[in-house]
Write a protein that binds this DNA or RNA. Sequence first.
DNA 1: AAGATAATGAAACTCGTTCTCATTTTGGAT
DNA 2: ATCCAAAATGAGAACGAGTTTCATTATCTT
Lengths: 123, 123
Amino acid sequence: MIRQTKQRQAILEVVERSHDHPTAAQVYERVQQVLPGVGYATVYRNLAALAEEGMIQEIRVGEVTQYDRRSDRHDHAVCGRCGKLVDVMVPLPSEVVQAVLEQSGFQVAGHHTEVFGLCADCR
Amino acid sequence: MIRQTKQRQAILEVVERSHDHPTAAQVYERVQQVLPGVGYATVYRNLAALAEEGMIQEIRVGEVTQYDRRSDRHDHAVCGRCGKLVDVMVPLPSEVVQAVLEQSGFQVAGHHTEVFGLCADCR
DNA sequence: AAGATAATGAAACTCGTTCTCATTTTGGAT
DNA sequence: ATCCAAAATGAGAACGAGTTTCATTATCTT
């Protein structure tokens, strides 16, 4: 049974309020402001649990995992110069999905696209 | 100046001969067969160097980095059940790229799509 | 062959993340 | 309201991929 705890709520609120894509360490820091004393393990455990429940989303960019409040499917654009990460939509046309099936035999259940380039500021 | 060493050659050959997508640890093991005594550091250093030169390709899947002999652009399909990773092509239609530009202001230089689902064997 | 310097191997070290375990909280049953 | 089993917590140890350090070795240029 999944229980309601102050830590869990605080962690969820922090992610939901964040308008960037915080890493676990950043979530940890922000949670400290609200609820000092929360341990790293708790933050990691809850981020993983919340992601599993679909309340938040995990994104792996390079060597760190970042968390995202959005729960709807979306993709990411990463700036090659400043590293900024922004949400974008990259819909895959059904003929592309069909082509993947033909190439690989995979029954496609989901997809995620990472686009790289230069953000508006870095251009 | 970049020097030619037996280790470097062995590492490149191992990746080129591999028809799966070996992790650094797997490359290490396979190199041992050919050239015992090679250190982890050497494997990592050379994989990174070869990737930088564009001789091989680095793919980050979850928490490990895998290496791929293919040097042309391509995408990946990951099986959610057995973890198998296969190469596929997911071309992005120009109108999709255009839409990303409009959404984000990004000048798109490249992209990589990960498709998840069930492979032919796991279906 | 000689010298400059790039590459190597071993081991120590990062750093993000997970595990362990004793203690505290939670929520349903009484 | 109280009790209790199970779930969650916090502290710190442990883990694992990858990187750094540094003394030694190998490679190129002359």
